[in-house]
Simulated scan of single mutants.
Amino acid sequence: MNAYRGRFAPTPSGPLHFGSLIAALASFLDARHRNGHWGVRIEDIDPPRCPSGAADTILRQLEAFGLHWDGPVTWQHDRDAAYAAALAHLEAKGLAYPCSCSRKQWRDYPIYPGWCRRGVREPGKPVAWRLRSDLGLRPVIWQDRLFGRQSFDPATLGDVVLKRKDGLWAYQLAVVVDDADQGISDVVRGADLLDNTPWQRQLQEALGLPVPRYLHLPLILGGDGQKLSKQNMAPALPEADAAVRPLLHRALDVLDQAPPAELAIAPVAEQLDWAIARWEPERLRAEFERRLPDDAATP
C-alpha cells in the first residue's frame, strides 16, 4: 500500500460527541498531511441501534467542523453479499462455526469456552457464527504507531462473534471486509479498539487481505472518569460556527498539537490548514486514557 487511504467510520447510534471528534479529526489530519484520501463509512449494520436521522446529523457535524470527505459516503447496510462471501470462506477453511450458546450459559467463564467448536451444542436453536481464535494467526504481533509493539494471543480473548443469532453482521467481520475492499492503508481510532485488532488481524490473514497500519488514540474520558460516549450521554457536537471554533481548537490541544491560543477564534478552515501542515502524531502522549476537565467537551 503506497497511497494513503484513511477513513472515519462512525456508528449512527446518535450524534457525534467530543470523543468522536478526536477520532475524526486525527484520522482527517493524518490523511490530509500525507495528501491522502479520507473517506466516511457509516457503520449501520445494527439497525435497532441506529435511529432515523442520526447518520444525517453526523454528516452535518463533520461538515460544520470542516471535515469534508472524499468521494461518496459508504454504508454497511449495502454490504451483505460481501460479508456473506467472507463468512463462507472462513467456514470452508474450518475457521468459523455455528454456535447455539447464550451468554447466560457461559456467564461463569471469562471468555466463551468454545463448546460448539465441534458441533452445535443445542441443535434446532438459533445460532450465531464465531471465529476459531485458537486456529488462526497466533500470536498476533504488530507495531502500533503510538503504543509501539503489541502482542496478543487471540485465543485468550475468545471466539468472537462474526454473525449474530438475529442474522445481523457483527463488527469484526464487517470492518475487516470493508477496510480491505476500500483499500484502507491506515486506521486511526480510539484505544478502546486496541484489543479488537488481534481478531481483525486473524481475519485478514485467513481471508488473504492486506494489513493496514494502526494508530490507536488515547481514550477520552470526561471529568467524571467515564468514557465520552453516547451511552454516557456525552454532549453532542455543536453545528453553529461560534461554538465550533473553540471546540476544534480544544480538540487540537487534546491531540497534543499545541495550537497557539489566538487560533481559537480563527475560522475553521484556517485552523485546519494550520493543523494539516503541522500534524505530528509523534507528539501524542502514549496514554491509554486521557481524562479531561469537566467543561472540556463543551464549547
Rank of each mutant, 00 (worst) to 15 (best):
D44E: 08
N232R: 04
P72K: 02
Y112I: 06
P259W: 15
V177Q: 05
G222W: 00
L248N: 13
Y112Q: 09
A296D: 05
P218H: 02
D273V: 15
E122R: 11
A240N: 07
Q76T: 06
I58N: 00
A84Q: 07
I45Y: 03
T197G: 08
V187I: 15
E239Q: 11
G94D: 12
A180T: 12
L237D: 09
H17K: 04
L252C: 14
G136H: 15
A82T: 11
P123G: 01
S100G: 12
E270D: 15
E287F: 03
A88E: 03
V175P: 06
K163N: 03
E91S: 15
V211T: 06
D108A: 12
H77L: 05
E280A: 06
W106G: 08
V73Q: 00
A266E: 10
L203Q: 00
R290N: 03
Y109N: 10
A9T: 05
G208V: 10
R79A: 10
W274G: 14
H216R: 02
A23G: 02
P12G: 06
R213E: 09
W106S: 11
E91W: 12
Q143N: 11
R118Q: 07
L209N: 06
A180G: 10
Q76A: 04
E43F: 03
A261V: 14
H249N: 03
E270M: 14
Q226N: 00
L228S: 01
C99A: 10
S133A: 13
H77E: 05
R60H: 03
S185D: 08
V254R: 14
E280R: 12
L221I: 02
I141K: 03
E289L: 01
R290F: 01
P238K: 12
I111E: 06
H33R: 14
E289Y: 07
G36K: 04
K93W: 02
L29V: 07
P51V: 01
S52P: 02
P126E: 09
A96M: 13
E287Y: 00
H89D: 08
Q204K: 03
Q143E: 11
Q271C: 15
R130F: 00
V73S: 04
L207S: 01
R201G: 08
H249Q: 10
A242T: 09
L162N: 03
A85L: 12
L252P: 14
G148C: 06
G119A: 01
Y83N: 11
F147A: 13
W75D: 02
I42F: 05
D294E: 04
L284N: 03
A261C: 10
R213D: 10
V127S: 13
Q257A: 15
L131D: 06
L67P: 00
L16C: 05
R121K: 05
A82R: 12
Q202D: 01
P12S: 00
D186Q: 07
R41K: 09
K125H: 13
P267L: 15
H77V: 09
L255N: 15
M233V: 07
P238Y: 07
S133I: 09
L209V: 04
P72Y: 01
P198M: 12
G190F: 01
S52F: 00
Y112T: 07
Q150C: 10
P123D: 06
P293T: 04
M1Y: 06
P98D: 13
G124M: 07
F288A: 07
I265L: 11
D78I: 03
P281W: 07
E91R: 15
A9F: 04
R41S: 10
V160H: 00
